[in-house]
Design a protein around this nucleic acid. Sequence first.
DNA 1: GTGTCTGCAAACCATTTGCATCGGT
DNA 2: ACCGATGCAAATGGTTTGCAGACAC
Lengths: 129, 129
Amino acid sequence: MSLGTSLRVTKQRQVLLDELCKVRSHPTADELYQMVRRRLPRISLGTVYRNLELMAENGMIQKLAVGGTQKRFDGNAAPHYHVRCLKCDRVDDLDLSLELDVEQKARKHTDFTIVRHSLEFAGLCPECC
Amino acid sequence: MSLGTSLRVTKQRQVLLDELCKVRSHPTADELYQMVRRRLPRISLGTVYRNLELMAENGMIQKLAVGGTQKRFDGNAAPHYHVRCLKCDRVDDLDLSLELDVEQKARKHTDFTIVRHSLEFAGLCPECC
DNA sequence: GTGTCTGCAAACCATTTGCATCGGT
DNA sequence: ACCGATGCAAATGGTTTGCAGACAC
């Protein structure tokens, strides 16, 4: 869990990362579990959760706390925003790098030491409306 | 649950709203339960959840999906942003009305019909750092 | 009186964890 | 050989729900 910890290369880890990186969707842990299971039928849900957590901590992937109840994961570790469909729950990327100054602005309105921010959009995807 | 539905005025509802509105913090359902229980010892957690949900739907209060595992509630129904302390989990308001154009900007980068957005800041409160 | 609201307890569901075994280094 | 990783199943914890009685209107 600390900085010096290097993760071992296990089959489970490899396949999990591979499956996550090859989709454009932003799957939940359970969706990923189903995907990986096709290649590793004996993998457990617990392993999926543990590895997603570890890989997120190590900056290899992103854990998204988007709207719904389940967390979602993104194989693209670079910072970017997301839009979520209110009807079908689909989550898309959003290339909106322009406003990196929100944190600067926010700093002027609080005595908190701002470390990061999260911005999520919600609406209707082209299919749903 | 629909527009025509007007909520009945019950003691539970009154006290709950009153307690929520008189604090500046952004309590979780359980914290609110503890607060209300001092005045209505027989109220149940279920009632607290049901009413918070209903009042949020009716725009009387706000349900916040901020960072952590538990949802938080805000007696101030007017749209505004929040900062959350990464250490003690305290949540403060943020008067940052300046950038109402984020949605406009976002619209240019997606084919979703954007309805709303949520923006949350995280950092360290003055007490924690 | 009618239909909503409440308290209670059980159900839910995403996620976490304990433990014995397995496997990467 | 060591220690992290895994599978399995049970535990957790926030939230939801079914039901019978109580209460607002």
